[in-house]
């Protein structure tokens, strides 16, 4: 029993730093996406004043339903041009891991309450 507990604690100690490095989708959204998509995800971020193209309203089920999860993954990872949209949406592949992007896609589905 004592040995099992030691093994469990060792495994936990090894895994813990890795767990700590992965940011939650909500925290990533706040840090990187709020600036254009807004604190409420409605496309009304602090930067929109002089933007030539309005950022996507992530709370709009109608607008978001037209995008597949693959499209959302692609546009976050490679930027707007990857899906023939605006250059104003940058690629975030150097910022997020693929796992973080998948989690952001799931978070967007929560915001729009749509599939």
């Amino acid at each position: 029993m004592k040995n099992e507990l030691t093994v469990f604690l060792l495994v936990f100690a090894v895994l813990l730093p890795g767990i700590g490095l992965a940011a939650s989708a909500e925290d990533n959204y706040k840090t990187y996406c709020w600036q254009c998509h807004g604190m409420q995800g409605n496309g009304m971020g602090v930067n929109v004043r002089d933007m030539s193209v309005q950022p996507r309203d992530h709370t709009s089920a109608k607008a978001m339903r037209s995008r597949s999860d693959d499209d959302l993954f692609k546009v976050i990872k490679h930027g707007g041009l990857a899906i023939d949209k605006s250059v104003l949406m940058p690629p975030w592949d150097a910022t997020f891991t693929d796992q973080e992007i998948h989690e952001l896609v799931a978070y967007l589905r929560e915001l729009c309450r749509c599939r």
Binding site: T31, W34, Q35, G38, M39, M44, G45, V48
Partner: peptide, 19 residues
């Protein structure tokens, strides 16, 4: 304009988020 970490210095505004 919105401080070192912008997301710590914004709030919802009438039309869009503001500093």
């Amino acid at each position: 304009p919105a401080g070192y970490l912008y997301f710590q210095h914004i709030k919802p505004g009438e039309k869009h988020d503001v500093i």
